[in-house]
Simulated assay, not measured.
Amino acid sequence: MLNSPMWKPKSAIFSTTISIVLLSSGLTILPAQAGPEFSNAHKKIERAIETAASKSPVDAMWLRHDALLIAVDKDKTNAKNYAKDICEFLAENGFAAQHTSVVIADQAMLRKRNQVIKLSELRCD
């Protein structure tokens, strides 16, 4: 994730793309330059999701304290079921009260074209 140019926090194109997509879906984020600082628990969740991916590598990124974007290989992952699994994982790890929105996106499109193609979205309750 950190070696990929589209995950660099200073990428204006990435920030703009993410903002446009998320604004259209009702989510908002701060511009990349004003990137929010997330708690150690948020950062641990990102790392745990990325390292636990068994089918294929995934990229996880908090957009807000209650909005998580996960980019997956759409051919190897059932996005709807994966979003449910992520909600369960978040609840098991102390994030139940956050009512987090989980957005599952096409990893290939994000990496190749810097576009977020939403495959699934679920609000964890």
Rank of each mutant, 00 (worst) to 15 (best):
I49R: 06
K43I: 13
Y82E: 05
P36G: 04
N78H: 06
P5Y: 13
D85P: 02
L119C: 04
S24G: 14
S56T: 14
A105W: 03
L2G: 08
L27N: 14
L69V: 02
V21G: 05
E37C: 07
F38I: 10
L68P: 00
N81R: 13
I104S: 03
D59S: 07
A97N: 05
I29H: 12
Q107S: 15
N78Y: 03
P9Q: 10
E92C: 00
H42F: 13
I29T: 14
R64T: 15
M6H: 10
W62E: 03
E88T: 12
N81L: 11
I13P: 05
I45T: 09
N40T: 08
D59A: 11
L68S: 01
L2N: 11
S39F: 03
Q107T: 02
R113K: 06
Q115P: 00
N40S: 13
I20M: 10
E50W: 10
L23G: 15
D106S: 08
K8Y: 07
S19T: 15
S39P: 04
T16S: 10
Q33E: 05
K55P: 04
A12S: 03
A83W: 01
G26T: 09
A71F: 02
A96C: 02
L68T: 01
H42L: 09
H65N: 10
A60Q: 06
G35M: 07
Q98F: 15
R47Y: 12
A91Y: 02
G94T: 09
F14T: 11
T51Q: 12
N93C: 07
V72W: 01
D75R: 11
R64D: 12
I49C: 02
P9C: 09
Y82G: 04
A67Q: 03
I117Q: 07
A96H: 04
I13H: 13
L68E: 00
T51K: 12
K112S: 09
G35K: 03
A79S: 08
T77M: 13
K118S: 04
A12M: 12
F14D: 03
S56H: 03
K8N: 12
S25L: 08
K55A: 14
F38H: 06
T51I: 07
T51Y: 02
N40D: 15
V102F: 00
M1T: 11
T100L: 02
A67S: 04
P57N: 03
V116S: 02
H65L: 09
P31N: 07
A34I: 09
L90Q: 01
M109S: 15
A48G: 05
N114S: 15
R123N: 12
V116H: 03
S11A: 10
H42G: 04
S54Q: 11
